[in-house]
């Protein structure tokens, strides 16, 4: 098992263990549910690690790998600039601000949010 998987699996096991220990020592449902949900989230993360790491060819995990071993590996597309992250963040800000103090802002913000997400998705394809 790679360290990434081991980390999440052991965290999830720890989450379950502490939830059980807490339930039997404190009999408090609030905390036991919180700890239980935490464990569930970690199980999902562990599952994701299994899938993601199988797909990747991790040259970083080979102790004797040299730079030449990595040749031909495609790390992916790295861009240096995009206007859409700030647009999406700003529109999310408008939506929440609208909910808090001025509902009209929320409608405008939602429209901008959808547009921004659409452009972001198209750009990163």
């Amino acid at each position: 098992m790679t360290i990434g998987r081991r980390l999440f699996v052991s965290s999830a096991v720890f989450g379950i263990a502490i939830a059980v220990a807490y339930w039997f020592s404190a009999h408090n449902p609030d905390g036991a549910i919180l700890l239980g949900l935490m464990a569930v989230a970690l199980i999902f993360a562990a599952g994701y690690m299994f899938v993601a790491e199988r797909a990747a060819r991790l040259v970083g995990d080979r102790a004797n790998a040299s730079n030449a071993d990595a040749s031909g590996e495609r790390l992916g597309v790295f861009i240096v600039a995009s206007p859409w992250p700030i647009t999406v963040a700003f529109s999310a800000f408008l939506v929440l601000l609208g909910l808090a103090i001025f509902p009209v802002l929320a409608v405008f913000g939602l429209a901008l949010l959808l547009f921004g997400l659409f452009r972001l998705g198209r750009e990163s394809r």
């Binding site: 790679t2 690690m49 990747a56 040259v59 970083g60 995990d61 040299s66 071993d69």
Partner: peptide
């Protein structure tokens, strides 16, 4: 987890 350079083990 996924972007370490060659030889940079955990």
């Amino acid at each position: 987890f996924l972007y370490r350079a060659p030889g940079m083990t955990m």
